[in-house]
Design a protein around this nucleic acid. Structure first.
Lengths: 134, 134
DNA sequence: CAGCATCCAGCTTGATACTG
DNA sequence: CAGTATCAAGCTGGATGCTG
């Protein structure tokens, strides 16, 4: 059998391949890029942040979703949770070194998209015009 | 001029801010980073691809979801669809120049995560041990 | 403040069947 | 091959109420 295309290995020789169904890296990618994951990581990139301030930074996120998102990110070692036993309680979330690297890459994508929105919006209009609003 | 915190603007002076609830850039970010969006863009980075081959590259995606994902990406100007009126029909999908830039940033994140999975898995074990499997 | 538990509407997703 | 249409099921996520 011949393999016509793709001479070079796609994901190098790493044991983890996000394109494979059962690879755990896919879960982590989803945590990081998920609806609230990417925004949470992006928001934390600006510095440590308390729970409710984080909620304000990420507009539209509910308590439940933020909590869930933070747990997943903490479990994956992207975010560090630091609780102080004061009263009222104060909990700070911050990126781990790993998280910071993820955040840099993510924010690069985010800023690129923000800067490309004119192009995107133009493409949308064009698409919608062709398809007649379908 | 001295600003105590956050001297540099977070998202510069662009009119689009993904952290804002109603910003269209958030939609595009979701299309690109969504469950199937990121994998589809990542798969197309390897070159133009037909529908069913794409399905094979992105393990686990259903016909419907791939179709839906491709439509959203096409509408946003990330993916280009090229249909040939042959029989049987042949349709090739490829990244637009915009899509290629997105793909580069996305693949950077993906490869970084794939290469960090040992660290992630270790963090998970540690987290689960602390929380007693909760 | 910083969350967790519960309820439930509705959107997302996957199977299945069908079309050009 | 390259999809679209339809339907059931399940997960997502918001609202609410409660705890420490």
């Amino acid at each position: 059998m011949e393999t016509p295309v793709r001479t070079e290995a796609p994901a190098s020789e790493l044991p983890f391949d996000v394109f494979a169904r059962a690879c755990p890296s896919r879960e982590t990618l989803e945590h990081v890029t998920g609806r609230w994951g990417s925004l949470t990581v992006g928001a934390l990139r600006e510095g440590p942040c308390r729970f409710n301030e984080l909620r304000r930074r990420v507009e539209g996120v509910s308590e439940k979703m933020l909590s869930q998102t933070l747990h997943a990110l903490e479990r994956d070692g992207i975010v560090n949770r630091e609780a102080q036993p004061t009263n009222p309680p104060r909990v700070d979330y911050e990126l781990t070194p790993l998280g910071r690297e993820v955040a840099e890459r993510l924010i690069g994508l985010i800023h690129f998209l923000e800067g490309s929105m004119d192009e995107v919006l133009t493409a949308r209009r064009s698409y919608d015009a062709t398809r007649g609003g379908r």
